[in-house]
Simulated scan of single mutants.
Amino acid sequence: MVFALVRPEVDLELIFPALNEERRLPSTIAATVDHLCERPWSSAIVVVDNNSADGTHDVVERFAHAPLPVYAIGCSDRGKGAAVRRGIATSSARYVGFADADCATPIETLDPVMALLEQGHAAVIASRRAPGAYYEIEQSTLRRCGGWVFRRLARMSVPDIADTQCGFKFFDGPLIREVVGACHVDGFAFDVEILAHLARWGHRVTEVPVAWCDVPGSTFSARRDGLRSMADLIRISIAR
């Protein structure tokens, strides 16, 4: 494992924000390494440890001799948004993005995403609501209801984006590094803030369909994070 805030430039850097992910992270990193090694782009993986209390760091050490760089950096500010911004802000890659440690979005989705980025698209995100997308494993009824409310509020800021919350988003590197410098939401509404800034700056966000699986073990808590996320969405919508 290499701890590195300053990293060599590559074509693609893939960020995994991680909070207590020692169980789910190993298979996700392994699958990602295997996939990236078969692609023509130069690539690196960055795990942003968001103050984990388990063996997340030990997991990353297993990939010290992987055929492509697997870096680890820390983020003392709690929240997935803070961790993602930390990874993006310290990147020098041509393209940079993030994925969830649970691998709910198949890593193969990266192929059409990269094709679009290389064609000049500024932001390409996986979508569970784009034409052709489907759920291989559905969410619980409670999560679906909460998602409906979240989407209604998110549309106040990004009315043209069908799915703001699928955890698989990739961007033009120089552009997104500028965007995250203007973002402040640390919690689970951070995606909406990033997408809203892109839209306000005149950049189109492209959605690609995904075969998505609901994977147990999410760190999102409806009781702890739900009201905060809703409040963040309202703040984002009025910060025009």
Rank of each mutant, 00 (worst) to 15 (best):
M1N: 13
F3E: 14
A4C: 10
V6E: 15
V6D: 15
E9T: 15
D11H: 14
P17R: 04
A18N: 04
A18E: 04
E22P: 07
R23N: 11
L25N: 06
L25C: 06
T28R: 14
D34W: 10
E38P: 05
R39Y: 06
W41F: 10
W41S: 03
A44P: 03
V46Q: 09
V48I: 12
D49P: 06
G55T: 13
T56H: 11
H57D: 15
D58I: 12
V59P: 05
V59S: 06
E61W: 14
R62L: 15
F63R: 04
H65E: 10
H65C: 01
L68A: 04
V70Q: 04
A72R: 15
G74V: 13
G74Q: 13
G79S: 08
K80I: 13
G81I: 00
G81L: 06
A82I: 00
R85C: 08
S91H: 10
S92P: 03
A93I: 10
A93H: 09
R94H: 15
R94T: 15
V96A: 00
G97Y: 03
F98R: 07
A101V: 13
A101H: 05
D102P: 08
T105P: 03
T109E: 03
L110K: 08
P112K: 05
V113Y: 00
M114G: 02
L116A: 11
E118T: 10
H121E: 15
A123K: 01
A123P: 03
A123W: 01
V124L: 01
V124M: 01
I125H: 01
R128N: 01
R129A: 00
A130P: 02
A133H: 00
Y134K: 11
Y135T: 01
Y135N: 08
E138D: 12
L142W: 12
G146D: 11
G146S: 07
F150K: 10
A154G: 14
V158G: 00
D160K: 04
A162H: 02
D163P: 03
D163C: 00
Q165E: 13
Q165F: 15
C166L: 09
G167V: 12
F168V: 03
F168L: 08
F171G: 08
G173M: 05
G173F: 04
G173Y: 05
P174R: 05
P174F: 07
P174K: 04
I176P: 05
I176A: 04
I176F: 09
V179C: 07
G181F: 11
C183G: 09
C183I: 07
V185W: 02
D186C: 12
F188I: 12
A189F: 02
A189N: 06
E193V: 05
L195C: 05
A196P: 10
A199N: 04
V205N: 01
V205M: 02
E207S: 00
A211G: 12
C213M: 09
V215M: 12
P216D: 03
G217C: 14
F220W: 09
S221T: 09
L227A: 14
R228H: 10
I234A: 14
S237R: 06
A239L: 08
